[in-house]
Amino acid sequence: MLTDNVDAEILTSVISVQSFYQTLVTSALAIGIGIAADYYGIGLVLFSISLVLILGNLAMYRK
C-alpha cells in the first residue's frame, strides 16, 4: 500500500499528486474520446470502447 511506503510527513502531498495525475489522465481520455466521437461517430466509438474493455477484462481473467 501507498501508506506503507511513504513517510507520514509527505503522505498528503503524494496522495494529492496521485489524485492530480488521475484527474489529468481522465481529462485526456475524455477529450480523446470526444474527438474520436466527432470524427467517427458516437456509435462506433462506444462500440470500440466496449470491445476494448471486454477484451481487456477477458485477458485479465485468462491469466
Rank of each mutant, 00 (worst) to 15 (best):
Leu2Cys: 03
Leu2Ser: 05
Thr3Leu: 05
Asp4Val: 06
Asp4Glu: 13
Asn5Tyr: 09
Val6Glu: 01
Val6Trp: 01
Val6Arg: 00
Val6Asn: 01
Val6Gly: 00
Val6Gln: 01
Asp7Cys: 03
Ala8Thr: 07
Ala8Asp: 14
Ala8Met: 05
Glu9Thr: 12
Glu9Trp: 04
Ile10Asn: 02
Ile10Leu: 02
Leu11Arg: 15
Leu11Ala: 11
Thr12Glu: 13
Thr12Trp: 02
Thr12Asn: 11
Thr12Asp: 15
Ser13Arg: 11
Ser13Trp: 05
Val14Trp: 01
Val14Ser: 01
Val14Thr: 01
Val14Lys: 01
Ile15Val: 14
Ile15Trp: 00
Ile15Arg: 06
Ile15Gly: 00
Ser16Arg: 10
Ser16Lys: 12
Val17Phe: 09
Val17Ala: 14
Val17Thr: 14
Val17Cys: 04
Val17Leu: 14
Gln18Gly: 04
Gln18Ile: 11
Gln18Leu: 13
Ser19Arg: 13
Ser19Cys: 01
Phe20Pro: 00
Tyr21Val: 15
Gln22Cys: 02
Val25Lys: 06
Thr26Tyr: 11
Thr26Gly: 07
Thr26Val: 01
Thr26Lys: 11
Ala28Trp: 10
Leu29Thr: 02
Leu29Glu: 11
Leu29Ala: 07
Ile31Trp: 04
Ile31Pro: 01
Gly32His: 07
Ile33Val: 15
Ile33Lys: 14
Ile33Ser: 05
Gly34Arg: 10
Gly34Thr: 08
Gly34Cys: 03
Ile35Pro: 00
Ile35Cys: 02
Ile35Glu: 13
Ala37His: 03
Asp38Glu: 14
Asp38Ile: 07
Tyr39Gly: 00
Tyr39Thr: 15
Gly41Pro: 12
Gly41Met: 09
Gly41Glu: 07
Gly41Val: 07
Gly43Asn: 13
Val45Ala: 04
Leu46Cys: 08
Leu46Trp: 03
Leu46Arg: 12
Phe47Asn: 13
Phe47Trp: 07
Ile49Lys: 09
Ile49Thr: 14
Ser50Gly: 15
Ser50Tyr: 05
Ser50His: 03
Val52His: 02
Val52Trp: 02
Leu53Met: 12
Ile54Glu: 10
Ile54Pro: 00
Leu55Tyr: 08
Asn57His: 08
Asn57Leu: 07
Asn57Ile: 08
Ala59Gln: 12
Ala59Trp: 14
Met60Cys: 06
Tyr61Thr: 14
Tyr61Cys: 00
Tyr61Met: 09
Tyr61His: 13
Lys63Ile: 07
Lys63Asp: 09
